[in-house]
Design a protein around this nucleic acid. Structure first.
Length: 216
DNA sequence: AAAACGGGGGC
DNA sequence: GCCCCAGTTTT
């Protein structure tokens, strides 16, 4: 039995138990809303993302509807999310591209990343939450947590971490793994001062054991 | 590889 | 005041 698999099992069980219920409430109901919400969320706290997306979707929530909103009006609607000027421009172009595509959001990574303001994370999140396609979007938090626990080790490039995690986690609910890792990172596995002392994973987490030993 | 975009909230 | 935020694009 590989110890990394064991750590992954424990991690997955914890994520499902602790954060599984979260998946039922906060996810937009269609791929388009997932995509737009994700663009709004870039470099932005969730609370502000929620304010901006609510503000926008209360006016329009389809590619056709949003593409009719003037640029300056759109900027005003989403300003709570920050980077509003660029995001508004991107959203209008994204809506235009979707309309050209028969009113369909692209359902593969390559096509998604051709859209302005859509990089690897936004594309993967759209695939995972919008289309239910198995993939693990990797941001700095997921990367940090995976390395601390020891799920990922050595000179693995950021782009390779997602695929590696998929293998390690096996047939789990990707949405819960994704969401759980992010929430866990925000609550306990913080970048600077992680709360290893009260962390449920500290006994088998490399970083956690080290931190606790240092304290004792 | 590093800077730039960016307003808002916590400390 | 300073730091950070489910990143992406440009230099």
């Amino acid at each position: 039995m590989n110890s990394r698999i064991s750590a992954a099992e424990k991690t997955a069980l914890f994520l499902h138990g602790r954060y599984g219920h979260e998946i039922e409430k906060g996810i937009p109901e269609n791929p388009f809303k997932v995509l737009i919400s994700c663009v709004l969320s870039q470099r932005t706290r969730e609370e502000n993302t929620a304010i901006a997306s609510k503000s926008l979707f209360s006016v329009a929530s389809t590619p056709e509807g949003i593409s009719k909103i003037p640029l300056e009006e759109l900027q005003r609607l989403i300003k709570a999310a920050g980077l509003a000027k660029q995001k508004a421009k991107n959203i209008l172009q994204i809506c235009g591209a979707i309309l050209e595509n028969g009113d369909n959001v692209p359902s593969n990574r390559e096509e998604l990343m051709k859209l302005p303001g859509v990089g690897p994370k936004t594309a993967d999140i759209t695939l995972c939450y919008g289309f239910g396609i198995p993939c693990i979007p990797v941001d700095v938090h997921v990367n940090r947590i995976s390395r601390r626990i020891g799920l990922v080790d050595g000179p693995v490039k950021l782009e390779e971490v997602g695929g590696l995690l998929q293998k390690i986690f096996g047939r789990k609910d990707w949405r819960i793994v994704n969401r759980g890792l992010v929430l866990f990172g925000r609550e306990k596995c913080l970048p600077r001062n992680p709360k290893c002392g009260i962390c449920e994973l500290n006994e088998f987490c490399k970083f956690g054991r080290q931190a606790l030993n240092k304290r004792a």
